[in-house]
Nucleic acid binder design. Structure first.
Lengths: 236, 236
DNA sequence: CGCCAACTTGATGGCTGTCAAGTCAGGTGG
DNA sequence: CCACCTGACTTGACAGCCATCAAGTTGGCG
């Protein structure tokens, strides 16, 4: 099992599979699970956790750090499909074809738990809740992707950026970090790719939000002064 | 079990859960599954299969017909998140929160198999492959949504429509229908909503494709004369 | 200190949205 | 059977948002 150090505790407490690692399980169930999540991996900023087209074997639970996933078109265009932080699960896209369908890249030094997929399927036969939890995680991912489609299909630039900031704020908050002050791990270009905008447009929207006094931007450091206002922009 | 009429055979042969209904299972396994998929439902054009916010109990396998799923914003903006045809599964978005997160609407008279979710989880404990199949279906949905995000985030109007037509052609073909001639069940507005475009833009793109001789459009009837060309537009 | 990537800001243009008018198809009722 | 009506669609003119191109600034890192 992971050593109960500070790092793993903060990470696991909010992990989508926390029931799997340390909570809600009997001693006997724990015995089944031990070998499943005992392996971990550390990545440096810029490292690939996996690449599109590579063989799928495991899914990953982020213990610490920050990732992006993206897909490429032949002509070089890319789409960032999501940003993942501690507690999030990576790699579920690989189940469909036994191949990873996107790249997963660490945006800062990170640490993940490696969870062999075959092990999950096997143990799910014994531990009912694990299967349900996996289904929920995947379903949640579908719901979130649909929301991103709504953003890309119907919103304008400033609405998209506001939605992005509100979403980040909420996720940081859920993990015990400040909801109004945080560091962006990604570049303007990566934000733009995720939001279907060019980096210049992202930069201009940041500037406008700052002019209005809703946020303070200093490079990658963000301070949100008026979260309500940002939320109202999204709904507008 | 469903009566082995022509309708159900054509539908089930391509169903994502065909292994569940009639193939690859022992007689004993079949006994477990019988009660699961024995209920069906017919819908008329315009009927809701389920609505966003309603309680989640079952997923649905389309036996015949055509559906759209969409989500709404408070201000009335909507995003069509997908079109589903026979063999496709509807309702997986509801697992996350035990509530459906989108609307599912029949675009023509349709028929679905009702598959209670609790039953799936229960039987998955006995039939290993069912769980894996469900995971694959959900993973495939994630991969497809990511592809739609790529479309919405990086492609221009004509590229989007070309990708849409190529995708439809492929899916009709997989189901034994013509890959180059078919009827659109949805309106221009619904196509536009799915592609993040206005209906006028969709109409103009259709007209241009026809001027170029790549397709013939007559109302909702589509004939593809040059599929290769459409495919090349997507990649361009 | 110097270099380079990341970022900001300005000017311009183009794609697509918006508004508007007209056409077409399908269904209803006389 | 036909007039009518409504929703869906097409086409044109124009405008606005964002992409593109360009130049300059900042910050991080060797």
């Amino acid at each position: 099992m992971p050593q109960p150090d500070t790092l793993s505790q903060t990470a696991c407490a909010h992990c989508s599979f926390n029931a799997l690692c340390r909570f809600s399980l009997s001693a006997e169930e724990m015995l089944h699970l031990e070998p499943l999540v005992s392996h971990q991996k550390t990545l440096k900023k810029g490292d690939f956790l996996y690449r599109a087209g590579s063989a799928f074997q495991s899914i990953y639970a982020i213990r610490a750090g920050f990732f992006k996933t993206d897909i490429l078109l032949e002509d070089g265009r890319t789409q960032v499909t999501g940003f993942q932080m501690e507690g999030d699960i990576l790699g579920l896209d690989g189940i469909a074809a036994n191949l990873h369908s996107c790249n997963a890249v660490a945006l800062e030094n990170s640490e993940v738990c490696i969870i062999p997929y075959s092990g999950i399927e096997r143990i799910s036969q014994k531990i009912y809740s694990l299967q349900h939890q996996l289904n929920q995680v995947m379903s949640r991912e579908i719901v979130e992707d649909r929301h991103t489609m709504l953003l890309l299909g119907t919103m304008r630039a400033e609405e998209r950026l506001a939605a992005f900031l509100v979403n980040l704020s909420k996720r940081f908050s859920e993990r015990g970090f400040s909801s109004c002050e945080f560091h962006l791990k990604m570049t303007r270009e990566e934000i733009g790719s995720f939001l279907g905008l060019k980096l210049e447009t992202v930069s201009r929207a940041f500037s406008r939000f700052q002019e209005e006094g809703w946020i303070c931007v200093q490079n990658k450091h963000i301070k949100i002064n008026n979260l309500k206002k940002l939320e109202s922009i999204v709904q507008a």
